[in-house]
Amino acid sequence: MKIKEGQNEIIEEFALFDEWMDKYEHIIELGKDLPIIDDKNKVEENLIKGCQSRVWLHAELIDNKIIFSADSDAIITKGIIALVIRVYSNNTPKDIAQSELFFIDKIGLQEHLSPSRSNGLLSMVKQIKMYSIAFQVKA
């Protein structure tokens, strides 16, 4: 399954880093590199408000595949979002709904999904699943 493969690729990519510094520098680069949302979609209704940082998530269905775009005002969150989008975007609603998210744990970033971070990331992952279910019904 594509979603699983995508996650395994990220795990391999991160296996290169021994130090947390290198890992974070890579995430920061990912965050900086990706203009991952169109300004017209950076609107209130796409906003997931965390206590710490804000996350925008936009989804549209094209040829039965969901195309996600997202952004955050915090760069580390944005870098992790870039990875999540890479995994999920361009997959069918059914595949997304049935998938499991495991790469964040495996690359040692599970703390970013903890409720105490309140960075909107956990809500974003939930929202992605919600979209997949909603689009399944639509399709």
């Binding site: 974070y24 206590c51 710490q52 940082s53 005002d73 915090a74 760069i75 580390i76 969150t77 309140s118």
Partner: peptide, 22 residues
């Protein structure tokens, strides 16, 4: 040019506990 939560996360990795947010 930086977000407080990014600062907080990195200094935490260096053992320093500060608070970020509103």
């Amino acid at each position: 040019g930086t977000h407080p939560s990014d600062i907080g996360m990195i200094v935490d990795k260096l053992g320093v506990a500060i608070r970020t947010g509103h």
